[in-house]
Design a protein around this nucleic acid. Structure first.
Length: 566
RNA sequence: GCGCUUGUGGCUCAAUUGGAUAGAGCAUCAGACUUCGGAUCUGAGGGUUAGAGGUUCGAGUCCUCUCAGGCGUACCA
């Protein structure tokens, strides 16, 4: 239910009949229950333009608002706020209407776009570390969300599989045996370290490594084969992590750096032709605005850089993938880089002017002391280790409570442990750095996944206990049911906002609010007690069912499982 | 040096993009139960939104300066 746009229409009609012009009508949530459900604050701005008393205008508008349908009451407050209360019967009808809806009342966007979401982007030379977590799950949430809302999403995993380090790696691989199944590949960190040792200790090896870099790039069959087997092994590691994280990235979503390799000379040609780049100190450079430091697109030795690859990718995504919107889910520290690359791409006509280019930046994960996340001995924390630990912790916690079969316990621990890590990450506004604290994540209190999962399990428990058909209409009988019904209907507005701004935390805080309201409802209004009449019981069961459905759908978009029993 | 960015109770985070008395959760203290799953709910204390000016009906949010942190800054990605 698009409540806000419905209310906008009502206000617009009122303004028109009152002979007032307003360009954009913004409805916001009421800040407090006493102020109603929603408010319109635009009158104060209009007053300035019309040079009239804002309260007077507000009174005038209020008189023309239709209060026969969705709106029950309107009031002027303060300097000219218009407070709006929704009608209980309307809330009841609307919630009843979506009881059987698999989309829980969420419609599809009117104008679907073709959106490229670039996320995860691990480096094949290394094990995935915690830094990749954010890109993977924020990107995946965005992709799932846009898809659910009706956009056509093209996932792109821009993996790092190209560059000088691969010469060293495949030379090392060759020494170990060319089958690519060597034991050492099980841990890329170790493999990399050993390769580096060989590179430093042997001049012969180092020369071979440099030679192999050139050979891969020129398409030497032997080296390409080595390279490919290395990439396959490394990508295999990533896929295990995606599987565990419930991240929907497949092999066919991979469009690696190497894919753009043969398009790089053309990028330089285009930049030269359009007079965008110039030669400076032997390197091909783009100077933007008054900046003194250029963006280098080709090194003096002829080699290309990551800006070049990104330009080629932008070109490809516009020309071949025909995207309307391109989202890069990449660390916020690369903000300037993307700003520059986007500017160049548009100037050079590699991307059409109307295509939206967005850098979806995110902050860094810190340890408890507020420093960048490292292991005790100062190394990088592997993502696999971290996730495994979360699952182990989750298992310990739930084991204390109730007896489960080993199989059920493992599945439960995975859903809860992984869910906790993902939820904690997604619930923080993405641009800020955040402090990683596993104990807090697996807590049952506060804004955590477990609190949501618990609420869901509780609802399922009620339904099991009832153990009969649930039918009939929702009745909104008191203030708490009013709030709950309204929260349920706000789901669509929440998702739209989250999609527009690419902010997963909009969804988590909504879910938290929803569950909080549900818990209050549940405390105040008994459902299955004997003294509750049949119609009320059914209505409350329906409200509980619908709440469960929304929690499930919300968590599903975040890639987090619900469980029927904890 | 220049540029970008951040600063909100003891701690971790919000604040619908300029709206009403800045909200939550931890932690602390005080309550509720013959539990529809207490892994819950109710309440209290705790804030000059880093500091100082400015813009206006109205500022955590916009502008200027100061202080403190983070990041980037010519051939890594």
């Amino acid at each position: 239910m698009k409540i806000k746009s419905e209310l906008s229409k009502i206000i617009e009609t009122a303004l028109t009949t009152a002979n007032i012009n307003a360009d954009e009508i913004v409805i916001s949530d009421a800040t407090k229950p006493e102020f109603g459900d929603y408010q319109y604050n635009g009158v104060m701005k209009l007053a300035k333009i019309l040079k009239q008393n804002p309260r007077q205008i507000a009174m005038n508008v209020v008189e023309h608002i239709d209060i026969t349908g969705m709106v029950a009451k309107v009031e002027v407050a303060g300097p000219g706020f218009i407070n709006i209360w929704l009608n209980d019967n309307w809330l009841a009808t609307q919630t009843t209407a979506i009881l059987e809806d698999s989309r829980v009342g969420v419609g599809k966007v009117e104008k679907p776009q073709r959106v490229v979401v670039d996320y995860s982007g691990p480096n094949m030379a290394k094990q995935m570390h915690v830094g990749h977590l954010r890109s993977s799950i924020i990107g995946d949430t965005l992709a799932t969300l846009l898809e659910f809302l009706g956009d056509e999403v093209i996932r792109q995993n821009h993996i790092g599989d190209w560059g000088t380090q691969f010469g060293m790696l495949i030379a090392h691989l060759e020494e170990l045996g060319t089958d690519g199944n060597t034991q050492e590949l099980k841990d890329l960190e170790v493999f990399y370290k050993n390769a580096k040792v060989r590179f430093d200790e042997s001049e012969e090896f180092a020369n071979k490594a440099r030679d192999y870099v050139v050979k891969i790039q020129s398409g030497d069959a032997h080296c390409l084969k080595l390279w490919q087997s290395f990439i396959d092994a490394s990508l295999g590691h990533c896929e295990e992590v995606y599987e565990q994280l419930n991240v929907n990235l497949k092999k066919e979503d991979v469009r690696a750096e190497s894919f753009y390799n043969d398009q790089l000379p053309q990028v330089i040609e285009t930049l030269k032709e359009k007079g965008i780049s110039t030669n400076s100190n032997g390197a091909e450079c783009v100077f933007l605005g008054d900046d003194e430091t250029p963006i280098i697109v080709q090194k003096s030795d002829g080699g290309f850089l990551y800006a070049t690859t990104d330009l080629a990718a932008l070109n490809f995504r516009d020309k071949e993938l025909k995207a309307d919107r391109i989202c890069y889910v990449v660390d916020a520290r690369q903000a300037q880089h993307f700003k520059q690359v986007f500017t160049i791409a548009k100037q050079a006509g590699m991307v059409k002017e109307e295509v939206a280019l967005e850098h979806i930046g995110f902050g860094t994960m810190m340890d408890k002391g507020g420093k960048p996340f490292k292991t005790r001995d100062g190394g990088t924390v592997k993502l696999v280790d971290l996730l495994n630990e979360a699952v182990v912790r989750a298992k310990e916690t739930i084991k204390e409570r109730e007896a489960h079969s080993d199989e059920a316990l493992d599945a439960l621990a995975k859903s809860i442990g992984i869910g906790a890590v993902k939820y904690a990450d997604l619930s923080i506004s993405r641009e800020s750095n955040y402090i990683f604290n596993l104990e807090k994540m697996i807590s049952f209190e506060g804004n955590t996944s477990l609190y949501m999962q618990y609420a869901y399990a509780r609802i399922q428990s009620i339904l099991r206990k009832h153990n009969a058909e649930v039918s009939g209409e929702i009745i909104v009988g008191d203030a708490i049911e009013h709030r709950l019904a309204l929260m349920l209907l706000k789901f669509e507005d929440t998702l739209s906002k989250s999609a527009k701004e690419a902010t997963p935390h909009t969804i988590t805080s909504y879910l938290y609010d929803l569950v909080t309201v549900f818990m209050k409802f549940y405390e105040l209004n008994p459902i299955l007690r004997d003294d509750v009449d049949e119609a009320t019981k059914m209505s409350r069961l329906q409200l509980a069912t619908l709440t469960g459905n929304v929690i499930k759908k919300g968590l599903e978009i975040l890639g987090i499982d619900v469980v029927d029993k904890i």
